[in-house]
Simulated assay, not measured.
Amino acid sequence: MARYLEEARALGIVRIDIRVPAATSGGAEPARLAAALGIEQVRITSTGPDARTTRESMAQAAAEELMAAVFDGAAVGMSWSRTLDLAAGHVTALPPCSIVQLAGALPVPGSGNSLELIQNLGRHDGVETWPLWAPLVVDNAATAQSLRGQPEIAETLARAGALDVAVVAVGAWQPGLSTVWDRVDNRVRLAAARAGAVAECSGRLLDAAGKPVESELNSRVVAVTIEQLQHTPRVIAVAQGAARAEAVRAVLAAGFVTTLLVDQELAAALSGNAV
């Protein structure tokens, strides 16, 4: 039998591949990593040959987590990222529920935006949407305050304080690791960094201890607050890449994440620092 197998391999009829399961890649086993990080659940997806492939795998997993979490009559908050934008397209069914947009629009070249994401989810029967008719970041605090006072926007933001489930993305306060970073000038970026910002979640900045960072950016953002997320029973957070490990730990320190969805590379980085 062994001789036949060797001949088959030599002829190219049989090929033997050894693959490492996503759940154990990099020494990061989901249940063990979740316990080490102090959260309910960790889900690990494969790290692909490029960011786009990795993002697609994460988007499918995020859609599955969302569909599993939503129940009839639930109030669901959705933030935006390129991964979550893709995830909306993988959602095949939702029970009757309310979908609340958690962050104003922040168009990214080659991607959609938070308003389009909400509209995409709203195509399912019985789903009511609460859009946030504003940009995520505006030019000054006075404009943001005025927008937050508009009835439609105020009602959506108020609903963000009474959610059953929320889905958010984690960015690091560094170039290329947060879509918000590119929306503000260097003065604001550096001031926030000096104030301790290491993580960004729906436009809200957090320091390494998970504390909200008071900055000019915070006053210019139209989005859910960290306090509102802390009052949400179930929060699914999505992050990709080892470079976001510090940011993820900061968001976890804020105490609102119950399920963390990461790729293998980030899981390995978190495992090395958390276990």
Rank of each mutant, 00 (worst) to 15 (best):
E7I: 08
R15Y: 05
P21R: 14
P21D: 09
P21E: 13
A22F: 13
G27Q: 04
A28Y: 12
P30A: 14
R32K: 13
A35P: 03
L37F: 15
R43F: 05
R43G: 10
D50V: 10
A63P: 06
A63G: 04
E64T: 15
E64C: 07
E65G: 05
E65A: 12
A75N: 15
V76P: 01
S79M: 04
W80K: 07
R82A: 10
D85C: 02
D85G: 04
L86Y: 01
G89Q: 09
T92Q: 11
A93Y: 12
L94P: 02
P96D: 11
V100R: 00
L102G: 08
N120Y: 08
L121E: 12
D125M: 11
T129R: 13
L132S: 06
W133M: 11
W133T: 11
A134G: 06
V137R: 00
L147A: 05
V167N: 09
P175T: 14
G176I: 05
D182V: 01
N186H: 11
R187H: 06
R189Y: 05
L190V: 14
A193C: 11
G196R: 13
A197T: 00
L205W: 11
P212V: 01
V221K: 00
H231A: 09
T232K: 02
R234Y: 03
R234E: 03
V235P: 05
Q240F: 04
Q240T: 03
Q240S: 15
A250N: 01
A250E: 04
L252G: 02
G255Q: 07
G255C: 07
V262P: 13
A269P: 02
G272Y: 03
